[in-house]
Simulated scan of single mutants.
Amino acid sequence: MESAAAPNLLVEHSAGVVRVTLNRPQRRNALSEELLTELGGALSAIATDTTARVVVLGAAGPVFCSGHDLSEMSGRSEEEYRRLFDRCSQVMQQLRQIPQPVIARVQGLATAAGCQLVAACDLAVASSEAKFATPGVKIGLFCTTPMVPLVRNITPKLAMEMLLTGQPLNAERALQAGLINRIAAPEDLDAVVAELTGAIVASSPLTVRLGKEAFYRQMHLDEPTAYADAVEVMTRNAVAHDAQEGIAAFLQKRPAVWKGE
């Protein structure tokens, strides 16, 4: 296992799995500017790391993420606020843009930009004790940027309820709404995450990368255009080494040997 540490972030590499851990438990893992910068840098490095196959985004302590650090949110200029929200939005988009799937490991409360983090990840596994909320309206600051990935995960009516009331969803309702993929007992959280990481690492990295790119691209296309794009992607995928190897391995009843090409 290889590991690296920044003041507010831990990054560990093991067998194709990169674990990125928010490490400000004393501040409920609030997204300070420094932490956002470190997280963005870590994601940029992971994106170009061919040994990284899947990312698990977790957090230290009882809270997953409480959103922006409110101690940095008072009395700033318009330009400073714009820079902060822009930086946060860029990091959220990086989660979708990097070639590796990103799984949120949610052990506790995820609020405001913390809920946004969960919604921006490709997959999410939550403890049965986790809760999700966008409570900015309660302090006079509507969760407008967290709204962007939230409404792309759950129904507009439920998203609006969360945004207007600030009331949290428990894990069960978050699962029903489509915000998370699975619920686990707290003691089983890592085992359930490992089921997903194991399945992803077992597949061709080329195929996973092509699929993730195509998934998000087609979401913004009309149906005929989406099909046209999908045909091109599948054609490129089919002639690649890994697809030919996978087909041959299936027919020959043997394990596939992926080259990532």
Rank of each mutant, 00 (worst) to 15 (best):
G198A: 15
Y216W: 15
E245H: 12
R236H: 15
A202F: 07
R217C: 12
F215C: 09
I247E: 07
A202E: 03
V201E: 03
G211N: 04
D222Y: 00
D222K: 02
L251K: 11
A228S: 14
V208F: 05
G211I: 00
D229T: 11
R217N: 08
E223V: 08
G246N: 13
P224K: 01
D242E: 08
E213G: 05
E213C: 04
A240R: 11
A194F: 01
A199M: 04
P205N: 04
D242P: 07
P205M: 02
R236S: 15
Y216E: 06
G198M: 12
V239W: 11
D242L: 12
V239Q: 09
V208G: 00
V208E: 02
S203H: 08
N237L: 14
L221E: 09
E245K: 09
S203F: 06
I200F: 10
T197N: 12
K212L: 05
Q252A: 13
Q218P: 00
R209S: 06
R217L: 15
F250D: 01
Y216R: 08
Q252T: 07
R209C: 00
E195N: 07
G246I: 12
L196F: 12
T207M: 10
A226W: 11
E223W: 02
L251E: 09
M219L: 12
V231N: 08
T235Q: 15
S204K: 01
H220F: 02
A202Y: 05
H241V: 02
L206H: 09
V233D: 13
I247S: 12
R217I: 08
A214N: 11
T225F: 01
T197W: 07
S203N: 04
T197Q: 10
A243K: 07
T197D: 13
K212F: 03
T235K: 11
I247N: 09
A238S: 14
H220D: 08
N237I: 10
T207I: 00
V208Y: 11
T197A: 13
D242Y: 12
A238M: 13
Q218H: 06
L206K: 11
Q252S: 11
A226L: 10
A228G: 06
T225G: 00
G198L: 08
F250L: 06
A243V: 03
Q218G: 00
A226E: 06
V201K: 02
E195T: 09
Y227T: 08
A226R: 05
E232H: 15
P205L: 04
F215S: 07
R217S: 12
Q252D: 11
S204Q: 02
A243L: 03
K212M: 07
I247C: 13
F215D: 02
Q218M: 14
S204P: 00
Y227M: 11
G198Y: 10
